[in-house]
Design a binder for these strands. Structure first.
Length: 871
RNA sequence: GCCCUCGUGGCGUAAUUGGUAGCCGCAACGGACUUAAAAUCCGUUGGUCGCAAGACCGUGCCGGUUCGACUCCGGCCGAGGGCACCA
């Protein structure tokens, strides 16, 4: 009969709730530890077995750190805006806040049943107006800021306005979108509100742009990326269509986001992924004159050393110069091509297997190195969104250019020599690696690295170009055409001059979602909010002019990009987080989340945090010093759990059969936290047996306390050693999140206790309980109480170990001949090399294998092994 | 195509980071207890050969470095994840 877990677990969950055991406050006398997991989206399906993996890992860490004397903060909340609630609302005409509240209640019940030590007084909910008020507030800060390119930080836009008032808009130290028209100080003075607003819109870190969305004409709605395949399967068409969107200028932080990762204790693969996502490239921008035009084409290249090999140029079809340089006779073919490209879907465009396409514009540029005319083509393999939207093509040393040149019979010349290849031999494939420059005028014979920097020097000296760094990272599309999201605190004012965007004053936050009749899409692609004219039409609260509200809503990322800060001060109604709380608790010491958030969520949150750092809202440059990805738990058949495969593991079943302590411990025992591993419903027996064995050390199966096995004595040397080894291993393993081996170490200690013939020393048993308590909090708290303790085990001190007591004074000496194991010997620790060698030579087995052979060498590793090498 | 991670018993895994491969569990088998079953406890369990002592093989495959390689290096095969014409 198993121990009475259900009774015990309910008892302690109630007791902890009543005593507010996990409620924490700032306490400058103690070091803090702030641990968190990715907060959940409260879906209608409830928890599945994957959720408790990261939650239990953080719970273990919290309890462990707490017992080590840290003031530990752990809480949770709800990432509750988002699509499923909205879709449910569309179907059932029920406000999403109602289903959200139901789902949260259900999730919370399940989390409590698992015995997690959350400080529920800090629970947050992204859809709560008291929360999203501050999400909107942060958006207003983005809107009210520009990025100072000289100081590499965000600053209030008011400062920029003062600069413009005195100096005009030329040469502002400010990252802008596009090429805005310029104003002198004088012109600015006379400009209209709209003109000023339009200019400043280009400088703000939150700005409006036309950006492509997934438009589904049949449904009359815009689809999220993850909805596209689903709807296409149903036979609906999805096309790219430009719509007015809010963007966040994350690109200005590219360099800082890159450099900030240097000090982070994050999975190497995640840092690598963020690095690739940011995609920094060093190179040069070079101007090519267009023959017969006054204008230049500016290109970006990472291989300026190959300039002599540029035999043609390619512009992106969307490049603004295309229309101007195309010659009369090429007009129709160019227009046809541009049109074709626009029609092509994303999937088609990124299909790498398809042959290169493009057309000649009829125009020529002058290669500034060779002074030779080279044809200008347009092709869709050049993207308008990267670099300058134009390239110099060096077919000899670039895969794509080579392919294109072959397809259209363009000249291919060699300007970088591969080792051991004749400089004049024709290229049969592009040589893209580094080598030595050839056929490159006075750059010839230089190794690639040197040729690059010399070429840049030459370009800068002649004014033809300059050193340049580009990033793949794009600005963040920050709006959705949906109902269930944070409304933007923005209105479009019409003061007779035309519409322009304007921030609502802070005191009008939060901007609430209106009640609507229908949550269905408006049909025009706009959000359902656009259909509510009494909400949309308003007046500018400062001037009284008529105005319209922004009808887009924020994406789900908005609320999750800063929630960790709100945990620190969740009820503050006059600031997002107080300075005192932020300075005490930040940074997050450990953040456990799935790898699906490795780039997006963690990059976005870092961006917001760095921005808030510039504003002085937070005092750390990075939010999460240590991050960790839990792996995935697969179904019993070893494949990903899914509804359609019917292999979803429901934790409720195991909770009722084995109890929360067993489920918690087993889920971590399954394997390394970061690994992907299948669920095995048989294996849980082992952990359950282990907890039962612990229970029976101090109680009967029926639940009656029985301390007869315990004794107020000291442990045998073997048990004493096992104890100190276990403390060492469990302590180090929990710190390193090797939770599976920590549990295994506890089982080994349990086995050693079982082997103890005399009474089990109480201090050994108590140490076992303390070390087990982060994993199995209920059973250990219960036994702790039965031992006579009045205070919670989680207020007890984590056991410490004595390194000297972890080692035996006898070691197993390994005897090898030619590296092969031949004998083992128990010998006292600390023998000299000579003594060890003597033991080895005396071994019968060693003698048998060395007999009659010449001993060439003897390797002795003290306290470990002797290896005799014979010829 | 490029980048990253990983390949160990029937299964999940472990191995002080170059020094006994298989710890801890699951499953299986044998035994004790029981009228019986469950639970519990004790034992066996990488493979081949052998009565045994023991020998040989064995960490995806091939090669290298080393007295010694799951661990380091090179090449290949396989699985998973990320990126995707980024000049």
């Amino acid at each position: 009969m198993p121990y009475p877990f259900s009774e015990i677990e309910l008892k302690w969950q109630d007791a902890w709730r009543a005593s507010e055991l996990y409620r924490v406050q700032r306490d400058p006398s103690k070091p803090k530890y702030f641990v968190m997991e990715m907060f959940p989206y409260p879906s209608g399906a409830g928890l599945h077995i994957g959720h408790p993996l990261s939650y239990t890992a953080t719970d273990v860490t919290m309890r462990f750190k707490r017992m080590q004397g840290f003031n530990t903060l752990r809480t949770t909340g709800w990432d509750a805006f988002g699509l499923p609630a909205e879709q449910y609302a569309v179907k059932n005409k029920l406000h999403p806040s109602i289903t959200t509240a139901q789902n949260i209640a259900n999730f919370k019940r399940q989390l409590e049943a698992l015995g997690y030590g959350y400080d529920w007084s800090r629970e947050i909910n992204t859809t709560d107006p008291s929360y999203f008020k501050w999400t909107q507030w942060i958006f207003l800060q983005f809107y009210g800021s520009y990025f100072d390119t000289a100081e590499q930080k965000a600053k209030p836009i008011d400062g920029l306005v003062r600069l413009i008032e005195s100096h005009g808009t030329q040469g502002l130290p400010c990252a802008t979108a596009g090429k805005p028209r310029h104003y002198s100080a004088e012109e600015w003075h006379h400009a209209s509100n709209k003109q000023r607003a339009d200019f400043l819109a280009n400088c703000r870190l939150a700005y409006i742009a036309e950006a492509p969305v997934n438009w589904c004409p049949e449904l009359g709605t815009v689809l999220a990326n993850e909805e596209v395949p689903e709807q296409e399967e149903k036979g609906f068409t999805v096309v790219r269509r430009n719509m007015r969107q809010w963007m966040l200028r994350i690109t200005t932080y590219a360099e800082r986001l890159l450099q900030g990762m240097d000090q982070l204790d994050w999975p190497e693969s995640t840092i690598e992924m963020q690095r690739n996502w940011i995609g920094r490239s060093e190179g040069a921008e070079i101007d090519f004159a267009i023959a017969g035009h006054g204008e230049n084409i500016r290109v970006f290249t990472t291989r300026p050393d190959t300039l002599f090999g540029a035999t043609y140029m390619v512009l992106a079809p969307e490049h603004p110069l295309v229309a101007r340089i195309t010659t009369q006779d090429k007009q129709s073919s160019v227009e046809q091509y541009v049109d074709d490209v626009r029609r092509k879907s994303d999937i088609e465009r990124v299909d790498l297997s398809r042959a290169k396409t493009g057309v000649f514009t009829g125009a020529y540029a002058i290669n500034p190195a060779t002074s030779q005319p080279i044809p200008i083509w347009i092709a869709d393999y050049v993207l308008m969104t990267y670099g300058t939207g134009a390239i110099m093509s060096v077919p000899g040393h670039d895969e794509r250019d080579f392919e294109f040149a072959q397809a259209f019979g363009l000249p291919i010349i060699r300007v970088v020599q591969a080792p051991g290849v004749d400089a004049n031999e024709p290229l049969i494939r592009p040589f893209t690696e580094h080598g030595v420059a050839v056929n490159s005028g006075f750059f010839s014979d230089m190794p690639t690295t040197q040729a690059k920097s010399k070429m840049i020097e030459w370009l800068e000296a002649t004014g033809l170009g300059n050193r340049s760094i580009k990033y793949k990272l794009r600005d963040w599309l920050f709006s959705r055409q949906r109902y269930w999201g944070e409304p933007f605190p923005i209105i479009f004012v019409n003061d007779g001059d035309g519409d322009y965007a304007k921030a609502l004053p802070e005191k009008l936050l939060p901007v609430m979602l209106p009640q609507v009749e229908s949550y269905s899409p408006s049909g025009t692609g706009e959000s359902p909010l656009a259909t509510i004219s009494e909400w949309v039409n308003t007046t500018d609260p400062t001037t009284g002019h008529p105005a319209r509200r922004e009808t887009n809503t924020m994406p789900q990322w908005a609320g999750s990009s800063w929630y960790y800060l709100r945990y620190l001060d969740p009820h503050n109604d006059h600031e997002a987080v107080s300075k005192a709380d932020e300075q005490y608790w930040m940074p997050v010491d450990l953040y456990i989340g799935g790898s699906e958030h490795a780039v997006t969520h963690w990059l976005y949150a870092r961006f917001w945090h760095q921005f808030l750092f510039d504003l002085g809202v937070v005092s750390t440059r990075e939010p999460f010093v240590r991050a960790f990805h839990q792996g995935m738990i697969l179904g019993e058949n070893g494949v990903k759990m899914s509804k359609s495969l019917g292999n979803i593991v429901n934790p409720d079943e195991f909770l009722s059969r084995y109890g929360a302590d067993t489920v918690r411990t087993y889920i971590l025992f399954l394997g390394p936290l970061e690994g992907t591993k299948p669920w095995d419903s048989q294996g849980i027996n082992g952990v359950h047996r282990f907890l039962n064995r612990v229970w029976r050390l101090a109680a009967t199966e029926e639940g009656v306390t029985d301390l007869s096995r315990l004794a107020n004595a000291s442990a045998s040397p073997a048990l004493e050693r096992a104890l100190h080894q276990a403390i060492k291993k469990v302590t180090e393993d929990i710190d390193a999140l090797r939770l599976n081996t920590a549990i295994s170490a506890l089982m080994i200690l349990m086995n050693a206790i079982a082997d103890e013939k005399a009474g089990i020393p109480i201090y050994v048993f108590e140490a076992l309980l303390k070390m087990l308590s982060p994993f199995a909090p209920h059973i250990t708290e219960e036994l702790w109480q039965r031992l006579g303790h009045e205070d919670s085990i989680f207020n007890a001190k984590w056991p410490s170990f004595d390194e000297a007591k972890t080692v035996d004074d006898v070691v197993t000496l390994i005897l090898q001949v030619n590296g092969k194991l031949r004998d083992k010997l128990e010998v006292p620790r600390g023998l000299s090399r000579e003594d060890l060698e003597q033991f080895a030579r005396a071994s019968a087995s060693v003698i048998r294998h060395t007999d009659g052979k010449e001993i060439k060498k003897v390797i002795v590793v003290p306290d470990k092994l002797v290896n005799i090498v014979v010829g």
